[in-house]
């Protein structure tokens, strides 16, 4: 039995699939249509968060100093992440997904400043030098902190 005969033998089945398959495909919804309900508030919040995260990335690339890069990273990522999580919380249909996204947003808001504080404190106490202009003042050193030698 040749392959051509095999294909021709299944011709009614193929015709059935061709005619009714599109009808079934039109009936069934995708996963995104079932669980996401997009509206204008969600889209605006997500665009806001994206602008902040893009600014954070450019700041990480271009700023001259460890402390200024830390500033860009910790603050802007917190703000942008909360924007995107809030937008996602508006978009979900089910209540459980909204609760989980809001839990993640609260966790971001609590932990990101703590992480930034830990990195900055460790960097200063290990002696990383800040970028200085003519009239800039190192306040912690003026108060008399004990810094160790430079560790790279």
């Amino acid at each position: 039995m040749k392959t051509k005969d095999l294909v021709l033998g299944f011709k009614p089945v193929l015709g059935f699939i061709l005619i009714f398959g599109f009808a079934f495909a039109a009936e069934t919804k995708t996963a995104q249509e079932l669980s996401i309900r997009s509206n204008i508030i969600e889209e605006l919040l997500i665009l806001l968060g994206c602008v902040f995260i893009l600014a954070a990335g450019i700041g990480m690339f271009r700023f001259p100093d460890f402390y200024t890069r830390l500033h860009a990273s910790s603050k802007l990522v917190t703000l942008g992440g909360i924007g995107i999580f809030g937008g996602a919380a508006f978009a979900f249909v089910s209540l459980a997904a909204t609760q989980r996204v809001l839990l993640t947003a609260v966790f971001f808001l609590l932990t990101s400043p703590v992480a930034g504080y830990m990195i900055a404190r460790a960097g200063y106490l290990q002696g990383l030098k800040p970028y200085q202009e003519d009239n800039s003042v190192d306040e912690w050193q003026a108060c008399g902190s004990e810094t160790e030698t430079q560790v790279n």
Binding site: M60, S73, S74, A115, I119
Partner: peptide
Amino acid sequence: WGDRITALDF
């Protein structure tokens, strides 16, 4: 190393 930790956190 501070830059690297900051970037990994990001």
